[in-house]
Computed example of a mutant assay.
Amino acid sequence: MTQPPGDFRPSRRDVLRPVEFVGGAAIAAVFTALIVLMTTRDWFLTLITAGGTFIVVLMGLALLAMTVKPNRGEHGDGTGGDPQRRDPSGPSAH
């Protein structure tokens, strides 16, 4: 995909969204690792559990994020242009 012409800049929320996913997965992995370490006292099993939990939670969060529809202003009408910057007097796709 190409960038739209002009001064397109993603919002701060859009830029930090991957950090939120990785942070959430890391928190879940650390929590699970602590539980496994306290119950088994086996470092190898703890590392495997932490890595598996990190990957599973990260993939789950990413898949859930893909199901969310963007705001109405972010939808296009299929013409490939930004609906808010389109010239209303120009040709339409309908």
Rank of each mutant, 00 (worst) to 15 (best):
P88K: 04
D14I: 06
R86A: 14
L45S: 01
G81T: 11
R9E: 13
H94Q: 11
G76W: 04
P5W: 02
Q84E: 13
L16S: 08
P88C: 08
F21P: 00
T67I: 10
R12A: 15
S92K: 13
G24K: 06
P88E: 05
L16R: 08
T53R: 01
K69A: 15
I48E: 08
G6C: 05
R9T: 13
G73Q: 12
L61P: 01
R85I: 06
P83I: 09
R12K: 10
K69V: 10
G73K: 12
A62M: 12
L34A: 09
T67S: 13
T53H: 01
R9H: 12
P4I: 06
S11D: 12
D42K: 03
K69P: 07
P4M: 02
D82L: 12
G52W: 01
A50G: 09
F54Y: 14
A65W: 08
A29P: 03
T46H: 01
A33N: 04
S92N: 12
E20L: 14
A65N: 14
I27E: 08
G24L: 12
R86C: 02
G73R: 13
V36R: 00
G90Q: 04
A93I: 15
T39S: 13
F8I: 08
K69T: 12
Q84G: 02
G81I: 04
G76V: 04
G52S: 05
R17C: 06
T39A: 09
V22D: 00
I27A: 15
P10N: 08
S92Y: 03
T53S: 07
A65C: 08
T40P: 01
I27N: 03
M38K: 12
V36I: 14
H75Y: 12
T40M: 05
F54D: 02
D77C: 09
D77F: 07
G90P: 02
R72F: 10
D14H: 12
A93M: 13
L47C: 14
Q84S: 13
D14Y: 05
L61C: 11
G78R: 03
A33C: 08
G73H: 11
G81F: 02
L34D: 00
G78Q: 02
S92W: 06
P88R: 04
G23V: 06
E20C: 11
I35C: 02
T32F: 00
M59F: 14
L37T: 02
F54S: 05
P18N: 04
G78F: 03
R86K: 15
G6N: 04
F8R: 10
R9C: 06
N71P: 10
R85S: 14
I27V: 15
I35A: 08
E74M: 12
Q84N: 15
T2Y: 10
P70Y: 02
R12Y: 06
F54R: 03
G52F: 02
V22Y: 05
T53P: 00
A28G: 07
A62N: 09
A33G: 15
T53N: 01
D7K: 07
D82K: 05
A29T: 04
D87Q: 03
G73W: 07
